[in-house]
Design a binder for these strands. Structure first.
Lengths: 209, 209
DNA sequence: GTCTATAAGGTGATAGAC
DNA sequence: GTCTATCACCTTATAGAC
């Protein structure tokens, strides 16, 4: 159960499915392409996972788990004062997103397409963000941060972190006129820029660093 | 050329195509569905627009034009000092995005799927953002704003504006546990929250309002 | 478990009547 | 211009040999 055979067929299929689904979405993905990617026959996909729909569900859940629990864990793992932890979180989460840059767009697209089905799946994950909310409220109560709705702060942080990665081709096209290197250079500096931008907005001067 | 007959077939097709493509993406859209939506026959789609691909291109360009020039115009139309105009811009742009909430996700999905083809299309639009960049630099030079890379500020504003709309079902599912009303209430307050968040981050105290 | 062959239904596109 | 009928191809899924 714990050991992983690398040329295990089930595993190969899942890896191939992740690649193909995340690149093309459910509607654009082809079972043949997944089979080719896995180096096996199309019939084997159905032997192991019965239908395209079942395979998609597995990939979708994996994608969600890469986004959400990582977010919570990246936050919880930090130590130091609130702003130190926030800065650490932003850095960790940008790293995670940049390693899997297509996952947010994939999830957004699928979940917009069948919101009722997938929104329920998300709700059932029952992600516990109370730790983050309480932490924000504590920093406000301690007078370190100006009052702000914790949900707003959370969503601002996530927006500033994920959106520029999701919108990479648009930013490259519109702002950098197609220059991919320009975008890349730009993103290198974002980690600190995002953290500074947020902290400048919310920190109260009481205990200047 | 200027007059518009409302039950003009060409127009009906385009409106139907916009709805179907933006909802389902290129790969998920069906010509039959577009025909049904337009209340006409499938063959007529090909009579007027030859292929699915041609129809998609038209819809995609319309979508881009709804996002980008609106952004520039919303910015240019404001008056008053920099922060007044910024606040006005954020309000206008959120209004535009909320009226067409599926367009950003549609564009992001398609452009991620065939980045080379569509990134070039974006670059060819040759959107002129120099006005915005210069305006930001002027505010920094005047000492009203702390120094920040104008591109960073632009992308931060756009991220905070668009992302929460694009990620509506995710936010509803994960943060509001499926409660759609919770999301809606939340978004009502975002306009001022976003503007305050940004302005708190960048404004220098020199000329307190 | 893995393959080939094929079924069953869908999809974009066209031909041709009106 | 608009329709029905149909083609040619593609896609998921299964049957059955090995």
């Amino acid at each position: 159960m714990i050991e992983k055979q690398d040329s295990n067929t089930e595993e190969k299929i899942i890896l191939a499915a992740e690649k193909v689904f995340i690149e093309n979405g459910m509607a654009g993905a082809r079972m043949q392409q997944i089979a080719d990617e896995a180096g096996i026959n199309k019939a084997l996909l159905h032997y192991y996972y019965r239908s395209k729909e079942k395979l998609f569900e597995i990939v979708f859940k994996t994608a969600i788990k890469m986004l959400v629990p990582n977010l919570v864990n990246a936050y919880k793992s930090g130590d130091g004062d609130f702003f130190t932890r926030l800065r650490k979180f932003i850095d960790s989460y940008i790293t995670i997103i940049e390693k899997n840059p297509h996952i947010p767009a994939f999830v957004i697209h699928e979940v917009n397409h069948r919101p009722d089905q997938l929104t329920n799946m998300l709700a059932e994950l029952n992600v516990d963000i109370s730790f983050i909310i309480n932490d924000i409220n504590a920093a406000i109560d301690a007078g370190d941060m100006r009052p702000i709705n914790p949900y707003d702060l959370m969503i601002n942080v996530i927006s500033l972190t994920i959106f520029p990665v999701v919108a990479r081709p648009m930013i490259t096209g519109i702002i950098f006129k197609g220059d991919k290197k320009g975008y890349k250079e730009f993103m290198k500096h974002r980690r600190n820029v995002v953290a500074d931008f947020i902290i400048n907005s919310i920190r109260l001067e009481k205990s200047q660093q």
